[in-house]
Write a protein that binds this DNA or RNA. Structure first.
Lengths: 331, 331
DNA sequence: GTGAAAGCGCTAACAG
DNA sequence: CTGTTAGCGCTTTCAC
C-alpha cells in the first residue's frame, strides 16, 4: 500500500494543505508544524506521487529532446549537454529518438506522449519544405538549427555556414587545391547544405573548383563516411583535401583512406565538423569545427524554459559562434 | 483552451466512457459510434492528456534507465538499445544520468521522480558493499550487472569474467608475455573486478605474472586510458600486451602509445572490452569483447516489463554470452 | 498560518 | 454495447 499525502496529514494531525505546503517549501509554515510534518513523512516513508502533482499543476517538469539516435556521437554529447543544462534549471529531459527519419520527426510533434513534457527541443534533420506547417505547434518549442524552416519559433543555430567556410579556408591555407566534400545530401535546407555553402564560398573566393567531388550520405555516420571515400577512390577522383560535413563521417573517411594506403595528412588533409570527443583521440587527431555544443544546449534550454514559464516575449534567435580546431589531420 | 475528453463526448453526443473506449481501442464499440467519436476528435483537435491517464491507471508507460553519462560511448549505445527494446513493448525510456557517482546512483533510487516511471533499469558502477540495503526497493527494478550486490532482484549480467579470460587468452596466444591491465579500480565488485579476475585467471593458467602492471581509473574514458598508459610509460614498465577494461580506455591507450612511438600491434598488442562502434574504425581497429549489448537490453526490458505487468514470478538472472572480436590491434 | 472543498482529465467498476 | 459514478493524489483558491 502506497502512502499518500492525506495519510501523512492524518499521522501528523494537520491538514492536507499543510503537508503540501511543507513538501513544496512554502514560506509561511511554522517551524513546529514543519517538523511535525517532516517526522510524519519520515515515519511513513512517504514519497510524493509526481504524476498526481503533474495533473494538478498542468506541468511535468520534463523537456522533450528529439534527435536522430544516440549512437551518433554528436547527438549523445548534445543530449548530455542538454541534460546538464536542464538539470540546472530544475528540469528533466525525455529523449525522443526519431531515427533521423521524416516520419519519426513528425511523430514527435503529434504523439500523445508530447503532453508528458512541458516543451520540446527539436533538432529535425529530415523534415522537408512541405513540412513547414507541422512546425506551427501550440506548445513551447525551440528549434535547433536555422531559421529557414519556421520563422516564428525560437531558434538556436550554430554557425554552420561560417564554420564551413573557416575550415575550408584552413584547408586551402594548408595548400589543398582539390577538396572533396563528403556528406552532402540534396536537402535544400539544414546543417548539411549550410556547411557546404560555406565551404563552396571559400573555394570560390580562392578561385578553385568548388565541385571537385562530393559524396552524399543520408545518415551521417562513420560507415557512410567510409563508404563515401571508398566510392571516391573507386571512381579515381583526385583530391588533396577532404571535408566531411561531420566528424563521424570524417573518422570513417580517415579509416578508409588508411585502408587504401593514402596518408593523412601527407597526401590528403582531412577535416570534419562537430568536435566530438572521439576526434581528439583519432589517429591522426582530427581537425574540426567546434560548434559550441554546451552553449547551444544552455541557450536552447533557457529559451524553452523562459517560454514555458511565461517569461518569453517574441520568437528569439541565437547564433552560437563556432571555432576552428586545428589538429594533426591537416598539419 | 485545451480540449478534453468530456468536450469530445459532448460534441459527438456520446458519453465520456465511449470516447475513452474508442481512444483506447477497446474492442466492443460499434462502428458508427467509433466513427462519430473519431470525427469529433478530429473536429476539435483533441489530444489525450497522458498525465491524467497516468494518474488514473497508476502507470506511466515509462522505464527509467540509470547510467553514468551518455558521453561514454558504451552507455550511449546501451541507451539506444534499451530504447529500441522498450519501444517494441510499448514503453518509453527516461534516462537518469548518475555521473557515475555513488551519490547520483543513490539519488535515482530515492528521487520523487522515480514515481514517474513504472520501473528502473539500473546499472550502478559506484555503489559499495555498504549500499546493499538501498537496493531493496519496492518498485520493479532490474539490475545490469552481477548478482553480487543484491540477490533478490532481477539481474541481467554480461559475461565479464569469461570475456576477460577469453581476450587475455587471445593476447597470450598471440605471444604476449607481459600484459598490463588498465582501468582497475579497487571496488571489490562490479564489471571491472570481474573482467580483471578473468584476465588474471588466464595469466595464471599460463604460468605468467598476473600483476605486470595495472593502472587504475575511476571514470572509464578515453582520457583515463591515455593517462594510464602515459603513467606506465613514465614508470618505464615493460609490457607487450595491454588489456583495457573497456574500449574507451583502450582507444585512449592506443592514442598514447602512438604518441610515444610505440607500434600497435608490433610492439604492444592492445585489446578492450565492450565492442563499441568506434573500435571498428580506430587505427588500428581494436580487438575487443562483444558483451551482447542488444541482447542485454532486450532481456532487461523484457524482465522489467514482465515484473511491471505482474507476469514475473521470482527473481530471475540472465547471463548473456560474450564473444571475442579479433581485429588489427592484436594481429 | 492553517483548513475545507473543488477540481486537474482520465479510467474503471457497475449498471442498464 | 453504452452511460453513470466514483475516484487516482495532489494543488489551490478562499475562508477562518
Amino acid at each position: 500500500m502506497v502512502v499518500t499525502m492525506r495519510q501523512v496529514a492524518q499521522h501528523a494531525g494537520v491538514s492536507l494543505k499543510t503537508v503540501s505546503n511543507v513538501v513544496n517549501h512554502y514560506e509561511h509554515v511554522s517551524a513546529s508544524m514543519r517538523s511535525r510534518v517532516l517526522t510524519a513523512i519520515d515515519d511513513l516513508g512517504y514519497q510524493m506521487n509526481v504524476t498526481a502533482r503533474n495533473l494538478s499543476t498542468g506541468r511535468t517538469g520534463m523537456l522533450a529532446l528529439a534527435l536522430p539516435e544516440l549512437q551518433l556521437p554528436y547527438f549523445a554529447e548534445l543530449a548530455d549537454a542538454v541534460m546538464d543544462a536542464a538539470d540546472d534549471l530544475g528540469y528533466t529531459v525525455l529523449i525522443e529518438p526519431t531515427a533521423g527519419m521524416r516520419t519519426g520527426e513528425l511523430e514527435v510533434l503529434r504523439s500523445p506522449r508530447r503532453s508528458m513534457s512541458d516543451g520540446l527541443i527539436y533538432s529535425p534533420t529530415a523534415l522537408r519544405e512541405a513540412d513547414r506547417a507541422a512546425l506551427s505547434v501550440d506548445f513551447p518549442m525551440v528549434l535547433l538549427g536555422e531559421r529557414a524552416l519556421a520563422s516564428s519559433v525560437d531558434h538556436v543555430a550554430m554557425a554552420n555556414e561560417v564554420g564551413g567556410r573557416m575550415v575550408t579556408e584552413h584547408l586551402l591555407a594548408q595548400g589543398c587545391r582539390r577538396i572533396a566534400i563528403v556528406g552532402a545530401h540534396d536537402a535544400e535546407t539544414g546543417a548539411g547544405s549550410l556547411r557546404q555553402r560555406g565551404a563552396r564560398s571559400a573555394l570560390e573566393a580562392a578561385g578553385l573548383d568548388s565541385d571537385v567531388a562530393s559524396a552524399g550520405a543520408q545518415r551521417w555516420s562513420r560507415e557512410t563516411g567510409r563508404a563515401a571515400v571508398m566510392d571516391l577512390l573507386a571512381r579515381e577522383v583526385r583530391f588533396d583535401g577532404l571535408l566531411a560535413l561531420n566528424d563521424a563521417m570524417a573518422l570513417g573517411a580517415m579509416r578508409a583512406l588508411w585502408e587504401a594506403g593514402v596518408d593523412v595528412p601527407g597526401q590528403v588533409r582531412v577535416a570534419g565538423f562537430d568536435d566530438i570527443e572521439e576526434s581528439r583521440y583519432a589517429r591522426p587527431s582530427l581537425t574540426t569545427v567546434n560548434p559550441g555544443r554546451a552553449e547551444i544546449a544552455r541557450r536552447a534550454v533557457q529559451l524553452l524554459v523562459d517560454r514555458i514559464e511565461g517569461r518569453a516575449v517574441e520568437a528569439a534567435e541565437y547564433q552560437v559562434p563556432a571555432a576552428l580546431v586545428v589538429r594533426e589531420s591537416t598539419r
